[in-house]
Nucleic acid binder design. Structure first.
Lengths: 206, 206, 206, 206
DNA sequence: TATGAATGAGCCTTCATTCAT
DNA sequence: GATGAATGAAGGCTCATTCAT
């Protein structure tokens, strides 16, 4: 009955989900266009085509809004990387490393501008355990597992330490490659150099 | 007696310099405690023990104030690193690299929290060409020169590219080492690992 | 009964209009009491019984607020004068002149203090082409037309010039009559004297 | 003795007088260049080549400073007019009127910009009996005397009233002539028209 | 007396958040 | 739930005025 009489409705809660997504999309847009300081909840609501009131129906405050976007963005990136990780489960160390790093580049290219703003301008004031760390930990775990699978080829004394090191070095390099690449250097070249660095680090004689 | 105990009249302009320094110190404190957005010029002035008016006598606006702090902070760090660079002018690649990286760690330990806030919350506000870039370039040049001095030992095909790569990787690792070091890992161990990564990258067979 | 006594729901947008009017009224009051420089947006809002935020919902800044008041005031005055002009369309020169000048006096009495503040303290801040000039021009046109209608009775060589001259002389006299009238002189007497001056000027033998 | 040893000194109090004049000159300049709102005591002091402290040695506050300038300016103008009044003591009404009005024009041209700013932007907040009124009264008296000398030629019923009327009408017209003269009308023509108006008013049949 | 650094009240404006409709 | 007008705390900044030197 409900089905027949009401205007075709999206599945349960979808209306809300669609609104939430619209708000997050709007947040991302405004954030990229104007930067954190000039992103007001009113401008976000307007861009999303909803009222401020509605925005506050879904997010308790501005920081929660941006945190949610941060989260969504992080999950997207994580997804790309995890897929790559899975795809290269049985590959050689070099191939796996190459694949993973290329996926990280890919992930950063998804929305480099947003990533930049989020990463650099949004440092929520109470650095309570937020999902960001959780994601990093997750990634570190996955990487650790990958390294463990190739344990015999590595010269690093401590795999967990190596994962931590690699994670940060690679992240920074990809970041720089995507956003600060100097004139005359291709993204491809920098990606290759990053792979090179990773492999050298993992397998160099000590 | 009076002469010995009373604060000697400071040289010309020192009063101003002292005030400026007090303001910058206060800025650093408040910035670290509250973050960029919650740092008000009034609170800085109060913390510095001067009036807002005085603050504005020396800095035209809030951003200029923080830019000055950024500058001062950057110069301090640069100084530490350059000293190390100079000290290891004739050393072996490993010794030079070790010395330089240790100095970078040292530089970051100077005021890691401030560094973080400055890097992540302030820079986005001043996207123009500022001293930051200049410093990075300076550092890249120095590093390039160091690498060139050891040219024969390196396997990297492009020294400038290598300098870029190294700079970002090391910076990120030191950052992470100082600020996000996982429990149970010593700063010393991470530093060593960073040196290891640098050397491996530079000298690994290709 | 309820219907008759309770304030009927005002038409669409009337709430805003009422608020805007309240703000403009408050602006006029504060302006007259304290002068331009000492009129703060906060005090206006308070006097109007709204928050500053609301004030800024309707006016982009302090000057726009006062400009709006100026506009409203000007329109009111213009209205009074135009009505008089229309009323005396077919009258004799003397009657028309008398009617118009009396209407100008009337217009100034509407809010002489406000007029003074607006004229002397606000205009200097907004030296761009604004409605004020437009109104003056409008008035000059109307006056020119009136004079043209009585062309044959006039001795002035240039009607446009005469309109300019008359406008300024009459305005100043009315101003003085309303605001600086010396003790012992009635407004009526001064008004009569002004009419006398106007007619003498227009019709004296040359 | 004093004379011999001290560096050649200006007569008694002259140093102060020179400083006061420099400050008033600076005030006039800054006022004309930037308008009342943007005229700060500091900028005036700087322009005058003295310290703010010195400025406050001679003027108790900003309004007093501008009032003093207003006064000085008024006295200069008054002087010009009085000279003309004196010069035409025995002349015919027409010649006297012409001479006086021309002198008023002259007086306004002395420093029309300053006059404008002073007249329109400086309405001191406490309109205590200030010199301005005194001057007006003085002028009114002089004019009354002039009119009285030509009593027999006039048709105005009340000479004091006529003086008041004339004063305001002429002042406004000269003002307009000097500052708002419409394109295509010469100052000379407007001056003549003003004289015409004055004479017509004074001598028209009633 | 002159100086000018220092003061701090107070102004204009913004924007996260609320709540009556 | 949705709306958006209303709120008001708070922030950056100015400038008349003071006072130690």
């Amino acid at each position: 009955m409900k089905t027949a009489l009401s205007p075709r409705k999206l599945p349960r809660q979808s209306r809300s989900q669609a609104t939430v997504d619209a708000i997050l999309d709007a947040t991302a847009q405004v954030l990229v266009e104007r930067g954190y300081a000039d992103t007001s909840t009113n401008s976000v609501a307007q861009r999303a085509g909803v009222s401020v009131g509605s925005l506050y129906q879904y997010f308790p405050n501005k920081d929660a809004l941006i945190a949610a976007l941060h989260d969504r963005h992080g999950k997207k990136m994580l997804d790309v990387v995890e897929r790559a990780l899975a795809r290269h489960a049985g590959a050689s160390l070099r191939d796996a490393m190459t694949g993973v790093i290329e996926s990280v580049v890919e992930a950063h290219r998804l929305d480099a501008d947003l990533h930049q703003v989020l990463e650099r301008q949004f440092l929520p004031h109470e650095p309570e355990v937020h999902d960001h760390d959780e994601m990093e930990r997750h990634l570190a775990d996955q990487l650790t597992r990958l390294l463990q699978a190739h344990r015999t080829e590595l010269t690093v004394p401590d795999i967990k330490l190596a994962a931590f090191t690699l994670l940060h070095a690679v992240h920074a390099l990809v970041h720089a490659a995507v956003l600060e690449r100097p004139a005359g250097v291709s993204l491809k070249a920098l990606t290759r150099e990053t792979v090179q660095l990773a492999l050298a680090y993992l397998t160099a004689a000590r």
